[in-house]
């Protein structure tokens, strides 16, 4: 397994476990930890945790919402001016989660760099 895949899987696992006990920012913590333990290179530093968490949030949200016929998702999509489109809301959810994870991934990597240099 290459590092990218490792980081990806690891991020999702930690994020899932932490999310059972911690608030939404558990995904930031997860990306930070995996960025620290499994440092990546270049764009992957951001994009691997981004994609991991975006995917996780989209899948989780989709499962919660499809069981209830997207009743609320459509309303929230209206509220957030997403044209009442629940797919757009799922993408927005992924984007927000991904962004939070991506920047934490960068920070995790920088922690790793700083730590290693000492």
């Amino acid at each position: 397994m290459n590092k990218n895949t490792k980081n990806f899987v690891f991020t999702i696992i930690i994020a899932y476990v932490l999310s059972l006990y911690l608030p939404w920012w558990s995904v930031m913590l997860a990306a930070l930890i995996s960025g620290f333990l499994i440092p990546l290179k270049k764009g992957a530093v951001f994009f691997i945790p981004f994609v991991a968490i975006a995917l996780m949030w989209i899948v989780q949200s989709y499962m919660l919402s499809s069981a209830n016929e997207f009743i609320l998702a459509k309303k929230i999509a209206t509220l957030l001016k997403l044209n009442g489109n629940s797919t757009l809301l799922l993408l927005a959810t992924g984007l927000v989660g991904g962004l939070a994870a991506g920047v934490s991934g960068i920070f995790g990597k920088q922690c790793n760099m700083l730590f290693k240099n000492k």
């Binding site: 999310s19 059972l20 608030p23 939404w24 920012w25 558990s26 995904v27 949030w57 989780q60 949200s61 919660l64 919402s65 069981a67 209830n68 997207f70 009743i71 609320l72 998702a73 929230i76 809301l89 927005a92 959810t93 927000v96 989660g97 939070a100």
Partner: peptide, 18 residues
């Protein structure tokens, strides 16, 4: 607060319930 609000474990997705 978009992170809180949209997170599946804490946000509005948890209210998607009948």
């Amino acid at each position: 607060p978009l992170g809180k609000f949209l997170s599946p474990n804490q946000g509005v997705w948890q209210n998607e319930i009948t």
